[in-house]
């Protein structure tokens, strides 16, 4: 079930993209598996089919899915690895920023590592307590 949030910062098509990528990562959607047709997904979510089409277009452009003429869209072979790559790229970007900031404060490598682990533990604990599922 793809869920969308109309109130979110994220445009709907972005949310769809994100959801599909998540499903691929969780292996709910496996390579060469068909995605729901534009018509069906739009109908299910009650959204503009163009929006779905845009999401699929971009996913295809980015290589996560491919289209077979007349048959629909399918998950790419290497989609999982692509997603991992993207994930890594995004996280790396953020991490790089953190590291850059830290070096500006003249923190050394170990101090950065310690700071990071402390923070990680704190956030993870809180998450467990809150029991909130993301």
């Amino acid at each position: 079930m793809i869920k969308i949030d109309l109130a979110s910062f994220l445009p709907i098509y972005e949310q769809i993209k994100k959801e599909i990528k998540r499903k691929i990562t969780l292996e709910v959607l496996k390579p060469h598996e068909p995605l729901p047709s534009i018509r069906d997904l739009a109908s299910e979510l009650i959204i503009n089919p163009n929006t779905v089409a845009r999401a699929y277009r971009e996913l295809e452009r980015e290589g996560f899915i491919y289209t077979r003429k007349g048959k629909g869209c399918y998950v790419s072979d290497n989609s999982a690895s692509l997603i991992k790559k993207e994930r890594d790229r995004t996280l790396n970007q953020i991490l790089d920023q953190v590291i850059e900031e830290a070096t500006k404060f003249n923190l050394r490598e170990e101090e950065i590592k310690r700071l990071f682990e402390q923070r990680l533990r704190l956030v993870m604990d809180e998450k467990k307590k809150g029991g909130r599922d993301e």
């Binding site: 534009i38 018509r39 739009a42 109908s43 959204i47 089919p49």
Partner: peptide, 14 residues
């Protein structure tokens, strides 16, 4: 209203 919208969406798709 939701049903109505669904029909519109279907029309759009088709």
């Amino acid at each position: 209203r939701q049903d109505f919208l669904k029909d519109i969406v279907r029309e759009l798709s088709d």
